[in-house]
Design a binder for these strands. Structure first.
Lengths: 161, 161
DNA sequence: ATAACTGCAAAAGTTTTGCAATCGG
DNA sequence: CCGATTGCAAAACTTTTGCAGTTAT
């Protein structure tokens, strides 16, 4: 079967366009990207492409199963290739996104299935925490902040319970 | 130490107001709620309260460590009591939110710490998947949809690779 | 009294929609 | 050619901000 984007589109009576190829390329290159980031990347090559088209194309590619999105914490969803399966580890201090193999959650998946009948989709998940660098900084006593997450407040009350 | 909201506020030179109490009550009652939902709930009692106040109050309560927010998948963040620690399991078919004890992820936390130095915050996380009911429906061959997530598309292409 | 707080209106940011022009097959 | 696709402008939302009036202490 035809696995190319063009082929996938044609099967549905849809058309191949330069914009669609560029959006897909951008998603592939960027790894995890918000619609805005994808748009910027696309516009580096084709400045005329409108962000509306990016939104529409991302939706379409997702419907086709070519890309998927995950919610990595704050506002915007991020898109990545559907094939690119992994667990996201988002640092809520610096925003960095680490990746881990989906096997990381296989034990958890078994337990949610057994206990609650809940089938875990490991790839759509974003685990939140503090990355190695920020943890080191923090331990070294550098109390700097640059993000919106509530880790400071959380820690502050950690002892309350 | 004074653990009441009033006391917590006073320690910082802030004031107790009916609005603040109502917002906190709403968060407690609702379990997981978006700012919009909190606002609706508050307005059931005090219709004059503005959504701006709800946003500001949620931010404040979070800063005080009284509530926390988590990103449960789609757009809006949801707020819950800070003490109410658990892992969220969001069904991307029906939107239902199950809860599981944070211990569910303790093994994972150890591994991310060991492998990547990543310190997992289990409570800020939303694990995504299919809840028992929707899984049953799906297995029974009822292909109905009501949500924005990409599970259908994902499954559709599962065989492509 | 007086500084914190609130409500309102307006701004800012993001995503969606309507439509005429364009372009792929 | 014909209908899918695009770009633009405007709409629809959600969240934030500025300010004058109100209220807790």
């Amino acid at each position: 079967m035809d696995t190319s984007l063009k082929g996938t589109l044609h099967k549905r009576g849809l058309r191949m366009t330069p914009q669609r190829q560029l959006v897909l390329d951008a998603v592939r290159d960027l790894g995890h990207a918000t619609p805005e980031q994808v748009c910027t990347r696309v516009q580096a090559t084709a400045p005329a492409v409108n962000i509306t088209t990016v939104y529409r194309t991302l939706d379409l590619l997702e419907e086709l199963g070519v890309v998927r999105h995950a919610h990595l914490g704050h506002g915007a969803p991020t898109y990545s290739e559907h094939q690119h399966r992994h667990v996201h580890l988002v640092c809520h201090r610096c925003g960095r996104v680490d990746e881990a193999p989906t096997e990381l959650l296989s034990g958890v998946a078994e337990r949610t299935q057994a206990d609650l009948g809940f089938r875990l989709d490991a790839t759509h998940v974003a685990l939140s925490g503090t990355c190695a660098d920020c943890a080191a900084e923090h331990d070294a006593g550098t109390p700097d902040h640059e993000h919106d997450e509530n880790d400071a407040a959380a820690r502050a009350v950690e002892g309350d319970r």
